[in-house]
Design a binder for these strands. Sequence first.
DNA 1: TTCAATACAGACCAGTTGGTATATTAATGA
DNA 2: TCATTAATATACCAACTGGTCTGTATTGAA
Lengths: 202, 202
Amino acid sequence: MARPPLARAKLLDAAITLVRQQGYAATSVEDVCRAAGVSKGAFFHHFADKDAMALAAAARWTEITAPLFASAPYQDAPPGLPRLIAYLDFRKAILKGSTAEFTCFAGTMAQEIHCTSEPIRAAVEHCISSHAATLEADFTLAILTARRPEALTAQDLALHTQVVLQGAFVLAKAQGGPEIAAQSIDHLKRYLTLLLTPETLP
Amino acid sequence: MARPPLARAKLLDAAITLVRQQGYAATSVEDVCRAAGVSKGAFFHHFADKDAMALAAAARWTEITAPLFASAPYQDAPPGLPRLIAYLDFRKAILKGSTAEFTCFAGTMAQEIHCTSEPIRAAVEHCISSHAATLEADFTLAILTARRPEALTAQDLALHTQVVLQGAFVLAKAQGGPEIAAQSIDHLKRYLTLLLTPETLP
DNA sequence: TTCAATACAGACCAGTTGGTATATTAATGA
DNA sequence: TCATTAATATACCAACTGGTCTGTATTGAA
């Protein structure tokens, strides 16, 4: 090998940023190159085509977000419901900056390419479901100790959590601000509390 | 005036269909013309530019969906919580066909143009919030008779309902099927029931 | 019957798109 | 030290993009 592939990482980061702002189709290869400060030659050296870059960007998105959550403060909360509530407080806490800065690359991609690119669809589905899976252990525990053991599965609840978050992003984009997202996360917290609080209640 | 503007309606319907499949940026003006079976001349006779068409399509989307919900069977349910539950059952019932057929034009547009077109952002925001507003009366009533009068507003709950639906669409697109959407709507039904059921509970 | 306005068609244009071909640079291994 | 190969750059292309221009057909009002 020659020098390390600097451009590749810069291209993926630029792509993720631009897609979160404008969407995938509206982001041209040249846009990405310009934002990354590299040439088109570098782009097509690292990626066969634009879709291959999208696939790599999905992988990079998980690479970025996974450690962010793995080292987040909510991991120190007691397992089960408390940690899930702490997770949602963390999700609220990171609703900072412009809409494009706190919304999800994977969700944005899913909206655009669900009909047109099966590989990308699968890749972003993996982004979302693998993140949801990190919550399953706590859901499993919370369900076990729950007061009302309605027929619930941890996977189902973990995915519903992502549904609320993705929907919160859509409404936040529509409204142009994060307020609705914070409110909806509060509703989700209340739902999980009502559903999974152990033992008695007033 | 000469003959009625046939092409305009066909163009808007085609645009809505295509945007739900591919997104806005990926849908070219020619695509829309071809799908509508009219010429480019007709397109630019009716719309100043592509964005003007998007604005008109947002209005048309409300024109289509408003009567669909206004005449839906859930309107016959008793007011308050029962009607809200019936509403969500209706939303589940219309999760039929391909992903593009049951997902929301406004939500898709919001994801793509939130940073790039303020007028379109406002238009699709109106689509969503005006639909949410149709639920507010029932939420107001349900909150009044609710067992636990936590600080809730009807508007807030109505918007949270839309958050869950929009998020359900995103995950359905990512997964390539409606199952997750139905499950999340069930969670929302359970939440509203836990929160708003009047009087005592076991 | 004429006339003006609306509704539509189709050719055309300049800019942009994704992608290629080719050249240059810089490390690595023999 | 020198060939090889990865990494980056630049010029370029055909296809497509949003948008314009000009022309035509249909209609209602006078």
